[in-house]
Design a protein around this nucleic acid. Structure first.
Lengths: 341, 341
DNA sequence: CTGAAAGCGCTTACAG
DNA sequence: CTGAAAGCGCTTACAG
């Protein structure tokens, strides 16, 4: 079945393509009678405008791109849900790509989206990303860009984040408040801003409580596809190297769950022997045993907020007005459950 | 910054737009020298073809649509990952939409994708969906369509599924083999084919083992956003109404995990008092306690397979050759863990 | 080997 | 109130 075009409708009604186009878009300078005839026939023929042609004319696609590091991931899935919920309201479609924590892939995905002609891009950076040229290209091409969660401070665009430092501080303070004396940290990889900030929050809490900072009990995990395993491995290593640790603040829930699993297998009681605080509040953290104390990170809201900001900027951009970049910080909350005393 | 066009390149080199276009696409009838000059300048100017114009000319967008019932969902997240991995290889982008288990929304999403001009659609149906007109419209408009997991048998297109009936049979048989005498079933909603098939597999296993089928111990859950809660509620109800049940086969892991949680809170020992088998093998099923025995459902492979089939059909369609629809069945496996004896 | 020309299906400034 | 015309940026059949 060949798609119906304006031309066909025009011919059938013996009027011009111009008038058909205007009638369908409710231009005020078309008679009601004509509008009626056009709309009726369009409905009968199930006319759908050719979006390729519309895009070419209007220079927008009502489509945005979203790049996230990992798809199978509770937090990012919630972000996607938030973005889609908002995009739907505004009539935007979303192309989703996964960078798989790789800078090279991320660069390629950005290029694909720019070639596609999306109106804007929302991105959470890969662990690997140190060079921001690809992001600056987005801006140079007058496409709106929003970064969330894993951001680059120096890129000139709006950002939606939480206060990772403060949240990590709260997590560590909670361990201290509940009696932990020697607190380890399983941190994320070295580059991402949020893993740096969480580490800094941890160290600041120790400092403020006069607990000496000991770099040998800070373990690193990449947190890509193998978070659970990294948690297990780090926990085993920790047990061998520092069996006097009585609390761990862990960068991500999934790593924390891996760590708990390994600790329990090794006969360590949680929280009696070692207390654990995770980060992100994955759903499964509330159903494992013991239930994981963690920091709630508002994924859905983050997605919603990111799209709203993007939408605002796309509209402003379109009117050729100057865009004011914002850094939006969302609140976090410590969820006190059973893995801490 | 205004996008670079073929025309600009042509003017700068004093050649025609035609030649520039051909040179960039490596047509054999352009001299090597010209090709060199064109490609060099294109690279310098960072030329990206305007995809709106390309789409309009070629009548394809190298974009497909994906509609899934729920985003925050381990199985579907894996399917997405599988589809994206394959789409990337073939140079396709993927627009993702969530039907939220609603027929009305699903219809709307299909319409959006058709208006967008995607080359094909992959879909897993909403629980609600009984009318298939919107799907037939996709086919009528010569767009390729693949259904996976939650399919409609009567729609004339390719399908990627598992043998839900057989898998459910295996699950139930396992409960019987490990000593369960009275086995309840928490099924999915009434409409979806796979929830029907799982129910039928359950009943057939009872029948083959001469265990009477008792409809009063079959409970229903919608399995949308509130799966965990439904599992809890059904478990509590079951305990009140039939405290002699010693095994439950549950339609989805997340419901099973909810049920286990409620049962444990009520002092029921798993698997000593009641054995549980889930369905789908969510990651969290392997980290809860006791670890859930379940059916592994190959989400990633399903996504990969769905895209491969779609790609094949899009290519065939483009050549105006007849497309042969296939029903592809992927294997499942019982993962025997700790929630059964 | 190169290029003029048509056309994909729309939108919109302009004329009447 | 209606419509002729230009043009968005490409691709490709055709002529030379």
């Amino acid at each position: 079945m060949k798609p119906v075009t304006l031309k066909q409708i025009a011919e059938e009604l013996n009027i011009s393509v111009t008038t058909v186009s205007k009638a369908l878009k409710d231009y005020p300078d078309v008679s009601l009678k004509t509008k009626g005839r056009v709309k009726e026939l369009a409905a009968t023929l199930n006319y759908k405008p050719n979006s390729f042609a519309v895009n070419l004319r209007t220079k927008e696609s009502k489509t945005i791109g979203l790049i996230i590091p990992v798809i199978v991931h509770h937090f990012f899935a919630n972000v996607i849900k938030g973005i889609l919920s908002q995009a739907e309201k505004k009539g935007y479609l979303v192309i989703i790509l996964q960078s798989n924590e790789s800078y090279e892939l991320e660069k390629k995905q950005i290029d694909l989206l720019l070639r596609k002609g999306v109106d804007g891009i929302i991105i959470s950076l890969a662990n690997d990303t140190v060079n921001y040229e690809h992001l600056n290209e987005v801006i140079a091409r007058d496409k709106s860009l929003i970064m969330f969660d894993k951001i680059a401070k120096t890129v000139n665009c709006s950002k939606v984040i939480i206060n990772d430092r403060l949240a990590a501080y709260k997590a560590t303070q909670h361990l201290i408040d509940t009696g932990c004396k020697k607190i380890a940290h399983f941190r994320g990889s070295l580059l991402p801003q949020n893993s740096i900030d969480r580490f800094l929050g941890y160290r600041k809490a120790l400092e403020d409580n006069n607990i000496p900072y000991d770099p040998s009990i800070v373990y690193i995990c990449e947190c890509a596809d193998k978070s659970f395993k990294e948690g297990e491995q780090n926990a085993i290593k920790l047990l061998e190297e520092h069996n006097d640790v009585d609390g761990i603040f862990i960068n991500t829930d999934l790593v924390a769950i891996g760590a708990m699993s390994a600790l329990q297998n090794a006969g360590v009681r949680i929280p009696e022997d070692i207390s654990i605080v995770g980060f992100s509040n994955w759903f499964m953290s509330s159903v494992i045993s013991p239930k994981l104390t963690t920091i709630d990170q508002p994924g859905f809201l983050m997605g919603k907020t990111a799209f709203k900001q993007l939408y605002k900027e796309m509209k402003t951009q379109k009117k050729n007005k100057p865009v004011k970049y914002k850094q939006i910080e969302l609140g976090t909350e410590l969820i006190n459950r059973e893995s801490t005393r």
